[in-house]
Design a protein around this nucleic acid. Structure first.
Lengths: 199, 199
DNA sequence: CATTTTCATAGACCGCAGTCTATAATCTAT
DNA sequence: ATAGATTATAGACTGCGGTCTATGAAAATG
């Protein structure tokens, strides 16, 4: 449904002006140091306009975060099919971490993870329909079929547990000060997980 | 330094009145549905008194959370020494989950994890000096010495990764609606981690 | 065209966590 | 005992995210 009326046209312009302004401000000053009033002032709009287009200050941010879905499908398409399942999973995990580091940054990730904890919000993180799950599950499922991966748990279940590991790593990245090499952390973690802790 | 003057005595009473009132309200209505104004009103004190005694609304809550440290040391003392390292770790993890479920609840845990994401706050979660780390590390270290556990990573490192798993599980508990059996989740997770994913 | 309806926007307003300032009760020193 | 310093507390105030109401311009209706 392409934009039709003048009204819709103008509304869309307003929305995009807000979006651009907000992202620029977030990028310049960090999510927590930009107020909605500031966004509204800077984009010469109003609170009414802002909340007409976005559900919350975080929502605007989510818009950006969801671009990661695009990233996932591209990733899947560009990956050689014959790679071992383990390698695919590791590459995905590392790529995801690097993507978030570059695109959202620590501040952004922190804000996103905090928002997901807001009561009664259908946060994107816990949406098991998002592409991350689909991609991961396809890798795991293939790995189980080919006998590379243990089948003690279902592919769906393993997908949940693996994605949880990623969330845990990202959460720690957000709360720990000092050096924290996201890619190295997830890599070491997966190595451990694949090998197992026993003996 | 035992309380000396009348002033100190009264101040302490005020503090405890606030604390009791706040915890009762949190327990009754959930952390997010209790305002500082309400605590102050209900305890017949003032904002000045509140923030004189507590750094933030979350701080008061942390006071309660830190009781878990007591729990850890008791746990360690009551555990048979000759138990395999793996069992000790699993029991600890499960006990911790049950403790949090009972004492903080999902709302409380959610609030705690959200607070830890507040920028520039020396959040308790990321304090590697807290007893959880010490207890876990002692189990892991013993397990490595006796040859039960892999020594590919240092005990300190494994402690971090294991505690991260717990944080990840608790985080997911907080963000996912519906059924989520904390104890079962961590148990299944540890089983996987000990065994490894390969073959 | 004239009218009625819709709806994007402006900005006053609310509730909240946290800060600041004033004050009076208590403590200390002489 | 009195004067002066200290400090726990009261409560006005700020800044924030988010809501609500009013309004005028654009769209639909006839």
């Amino acid at each position: 449904m392409v934009t039709k009326t003048l009204r819709q046209q103008k509304a869309l312009e307003t929305k995009q002006r807000i979006l651009r302004t907000a992202l620029a401000l977030f990028s310049a000053k960090g999510f927590d140091h930009v107020s909605v009033d500031e966004i509204v002032r800077e984009s010469a709009t109003s609170k009414g306009a802002f909340y007409g287009h976005f559900a919350s200050k975080y929502d605007i941010f989510l818009e950006k975060f969801k671009e990661i879905d695009q990233f996932y499908s591209e990733f899947q398409q560009n990956l050689p099919d014959e790679l071992p399942a383990e390698d695919k999973i590791r590459k995905l995990a590392i790529a995801q971490m690097m993507y978030l580091r570059e695109e959202l940054g620590r501040d952004g990730t922190r804000a996103l993870y905090a928002y997901a904890l807001t009561p009664s919000v259908d946060n994107y993180l816990s949406d098991t329909e998002r592409p991350l799950y689909a991609v991961l599950e396809s890798f795991i499922s293939a790995g189980q079929k080919s006998g590379e991966l243990a089948s003690t748990a279902s592919a769906k279940r393993l997908t949940m547990l693996l994605s949880r590991s990623m969330r845990g790593t990202l959460y720690d990245w957000a709360i720990f000060d000092g050096d924290f090499d996201l890619a190295a952390e997830i890599d070491e973690w997966l190595e451990l997980l694949f090998t197992g802790l026993r003996v």
